[in-house]
């Protein structure tokens, strides 16, 4: 289980003016099962007490890996620089007091409509696979996957 709970998701202990994160190798006690197992919570290689921004290229690479993007070595400096500047821009949120504010996921306080359980879509394979890059016998093909 690598399901983090929101309450344990992270603890922003940074009290300084900058938007700092203190616990990067924090092991989160996750366990829906309460079995006390630990997983490394962050994919990023920060160290405990290390203030902050992912200014070193390996961090951007870790995020890129998570997003399945490949960054050219030549562009890494630039990408890291812009990435860091964007994060610095958003850092100003830290100064806003949001204690007790319910997060807003959607602009309106509306609730989900439900659909009747009826089959409305027939076989559209041919049309839907028209622009598929690699198809055989109706299957989409990908390089061999090993479970």
């Amino acid at each position: 289980m690598t399901k983090p709970s929101s309450a344990k998701h992270s603890k922003n202990t940074g009290k300084s003016a900058s938007f700092s994160f203190v616990l990067k190798w924090e092991c989160i006690n996750v366990g829906v099962f309460g079995q006390g197992e630990s997983v490394v919570a962050s994919p990023l290689s920060f160290h405990s007490g290390y203030a902050a921004m992912p200014t070193i290229p390996t961090d951007v690479l870790s995020v890129a890996q998570l997003a399945r993007l490949r960054i050219d070595e030549a562009a890494l400096g630039d990408v890291t620089d812009r990435f860091t500047r964007t994060l610095n821009l958003v850092a100003q949120l830290e100064e806003i007091d949001t204690a007790g504010v319910i997060p807003m996921s959607n602009p309106h306080d509306m609730h989900q409509r439900l659909r009747a359980d009826s089959v409305t879509e027939g076989n559209q394979r041919e049309a839907l696979q028209q622009t598929a890059p690699a198809v055989e016998d109706g299957f989409f093909l990908v390089p061999k996957v090993i479970d």
Binding site: S10, F21, L44
Partner: peptide, 10 residues
């Protein structure tokens, strides 16, 4: 990055 574990809340 903003959604990743450890940074979601912040």
């Amino acid at each position: 990055y903003a959604l990743s574990a450890g940074f979601y809340d912040a």
